[in-house]
Write a protein that binds this DNA or RNA. Structure first.
Lengths: 139, 139
DNA sequence: AGATTTGACGATACTAAGTCTCAAATACTA
DNA sequence: TAGTATTTGAGACTTAGTATCGTCAAATCT
């Protein structure tokens, strides 16, 4: 996604296109492999921390980026390339992210839902990998 | 699990059975529905925060309790009743936890592993529900 | 049981991640 | 272009957890 498209989405949702938001957009779309909030703050020293976090939240709400968590719980953001529901596999060494969608996963989620008492309102499914570059077997 | 068994497991792993650990054990086994680290600290005002966190880590390593994360990322601990690998469904309203094991999930995990570039080193699978008591449909 | 060794404790300072506040600045609208 | 509602940013605050380190006590040894 290019910054212009990203900003257009925010505009459609009624948000103003401000300088800081443009600058965040610029950086975010360039980080194909995901990033932490702190990285973003460092990359944008002229944008306040609060604004960075606020903008991240907007982008997550707009499903432009996804927020996921490393094994230790450290949050990590990644631009979402798919418009549809999907999951992520994150390399624990370099942070590279593979998006995937698996209809089997969705079927399993539904099946489990009917086995549990109560109603499923969400789920979190994340895979941690060592990517090819980082020593994992290349399949 | 009763506190004695819990402590025996720690002992087997070479840890000393100290007063603070006994007190933590006592409280943990009583919290069937999960708890936060802060709740544990409050419940044990005479045990230092650092000790509470250290003991939680020991218990997680020993797979006596599981650490999971609510939708907003807030960590939550829960006594593990199953000895085997399993997943959790947490009520977002009251925190009640259902453990489940689903062989389908495991099969799917394996199948996805062979589709991804690299090697799977872990995964996180959590379901968020509204339990029967909290307004979710009872299935 | 008493002495020794070594792991554990806890007070406190610190870090990291994120939120809140509010006056000042700025983007949109008419 | 003036008006107004939104957004910003500095910095204080919060929350969750870690590090330090002198003190203490559990297990072991004799």
């Amino acid at each position: 996604m290019d910054p212009t498209t990203l900003l257009a989405i925010l505009e459609d949702r009624g948000y103003r296109l401000t300088g800081p938001r443009r600058r965040v957009a610029e950086v975010v779309v360039g980080k194909a492999d995901g990033f932490t909030a702190e990285e973003l703050c460092s990359a944008l020293p002229n944008v306040g921390r609060a604004t960075v976090y606020r903008t991240l939240k907007l982008l997550v709400d707009a499903t432009i980026i996804c927020k996921l968590a490393m094994p230790d719980g450290e949050p990590r953001y990644t631009p979402s390339h798919a418009g549809y529901h999907h999951h992520h596999a994150v390399c624990v060494d370099c942070g590279a992210i593979q998006e995937f969608r698996d209809s089997t996963v969705e079927r399993v989620v539904k099946a489990i839902g009917s086995d549990l008492e109560g109603q499923i309102v969400g789920h979190r499914i994340e895979f941690f990998i060592q990517c090819g570059k980082c020593g994992g077997r290349v399949s």
